[in-house]
Design a protein around this nucleic acid. Structure first.
Length: 414
DNA sequence: GTAATCACG
DNA sequence: ACGTACGTGATTACA
């Protein structure tokens, strides 16, 4: 019986999606190569200055890009930590997380962090992207993998268009390099607001969560008010920020350790927060337990469209392996259902655009976002159509909200 | 080839 | 007692 659902998923979603993806890949997206080349010159000289400064501060020349050499400088020569954190293989950890904790011990740390950021930007994006512009089309053509991610998400390679920087000032400049086809077009981006938490609300049917979404309130503030037992108007920035982490944790299959690491409190305090959360959102807890129970019985969990993730480790004797599978049992239906929803939307949007013979084109998918080359004559028509198809892709216990933006580059469209 | 790091949702 | 937040891909160093 249930196999019918998996076949429907295949026939009604994955197969029709192949053509949509093929068209997006063939269409490609325009890149402002000249801008990136200028930016490269600027970043390269910044990088040179940083390199000199770091070598000067270390009083030694070494390869800053070698974590091994970096560890030896920081922890053997400069002795910045009494008991340096090690990686799995016994090397000194020099990850951003580790370095941030050493920020105040030596001025070299800040320079290293900046160096790392600039180097990453240059090698992965600023210098790499222009190389991938197709000589015939003059556009960037990614490849979307439809059968890589175990949750049902797409992935993107060559280049990975789903991890273009946005969080830092320097990174934003890279987004600015993704531009419309020509002067008759504008880039338009449409993204689902809090889709995974809405799915959690809908699947768990937790009253508190449903009420929050059905009343259109800020979910992280609403969560903070409940968890910290204060009035919404008394939620401060720190409380909201912690609640946001809790909400992320809920989607990931929360653990006291993970939360404590994320927000920098003790495990005891983290456990306290989680206990309060489950007290305030009891059906979320019930749903999470139910998901794990389903996994134990069937050795798989499923999304709203019946997509399965098999979890052979769910009954493992090794507690750590088992705990991992339990988090997967909670996360996969959430992340996977979000993937189902945007895939349905993509098929319906593409179908409608073709039927209307529109000039606009769907270009990219970034998990909860779709990006379009929008022909200026179709501006309001396209935005209305896309919003409608995305919002109506499926019917949940809460509304799906889609935010739309547009501009002369991908950054502005956000 | 693998480990470490870091970019995104 | 142990060691963990979920899902990806690209780059670099190094055995």
């Amino acid at each position: 019986m249930k196999e019918v659902e998996v076949f429907d998923l295949f026939e009604k979603i994955e197969i029709p999606l192949t053509k949509v993806l093929a068209k997006m890949e063939l269409e490609g997206i325009a890149l402002d190569v000249e801008m990136l080349q200028n930016y490269s010159t600027q970043l390269t000289s910044e990088l040179q200055l940083l390199e000199n400064k770091i070598h000067q501060l270390a009083d030694e020349e070494f390869n800053i890009s070698s974590p091994k050499q970096m560890g030896e400088i920081l922890f053997e020569k400069l002795e910045l930590s009494k008991k340096p954190k090690k990686t799995k293989s016994g090397q000194y950890s020099t990850s951003e997380e580790t370095l941030l904790k050493l920020k105040d011990t030596h001025p070299i740390i800040d320079e290293i962090l900046t160096f790392r950021g600039v180097k990453k930007l240059l090698s992965t994006y600023v210098d790499a992207l222009p190389e991938l512009v197709n000589t015939e089309t003059k556009r960037i053509h990614t490849t979307f993998n439809q059968s890589v991610a175990s949750t049902g998400r797409l992935s993107s390679v060559n280049p990975n268009i789903q991890n273009i920087p946005i969080r830092t000032k320097r990174g934003m400049k890279v987004r600015e390099a993704f531009i419309p086809k020509d002067k008759n077009y504008t880039l338009m981006a449409a993204d689902y607001s809090q889709i995974e938490l809405r799915i959690m609300a809908s699947l768990s049917k937790d009253e508190g969560m449903l009420t929050a979404f059905n009343n259109g309130v800020d979910i992280h503030s609403a969560t903070a008010a409940k968890v910290f037992k204060v009035d919404v108007k008394d939620v401060d920035r720190n409380m909201r920020s912690q609640a946001k982490s809790v909400n992320f944790g809920i989607i990931y299959g929360i653990s006291a350790f993970g939360l404590s690491q994320n927000i920098g409190v003790s495990r005891t305090e983290a456990k306290e927060i989680i206990d309060n959360y489950f007290e305030q959102f009891p059906k979320v807890k019930e749903y999470m337990d139910w998901s794990i129970e389903q996994a134990r019985e069937k050795e798989y969990v499923e999304t709203i469209m019946g997509r399965r993730r098999y979890l052979k480790d769910i009954n493992a004797r090794n507690g750590m392996i088992r705990a991992m599978a339990e988090r997967n049992a909670i996360n996969a239906p959430i992340q996977g259902s979000a993937a189902d929803i945007i895939k349905i939307a993509m098929i319906n949007v593409q179908q409608e655009m073709e039927q209307r013979e529109m000039k606009s084109k769907m270009l990219l998918q970034v998990h909860d976002e779709l990006v379009f080359d929008m022909h200026n004559s179709e501006s309001s028509e396209l935005k209305t159509l896309v919003k409608e198809k995305m919002v109506q892709a499926v019917s949940l216990q809460v509304p799906l909200i889609v935010d739309i933006g547009e501009g002369l580059n991908w950054l502005e469209a956000h």
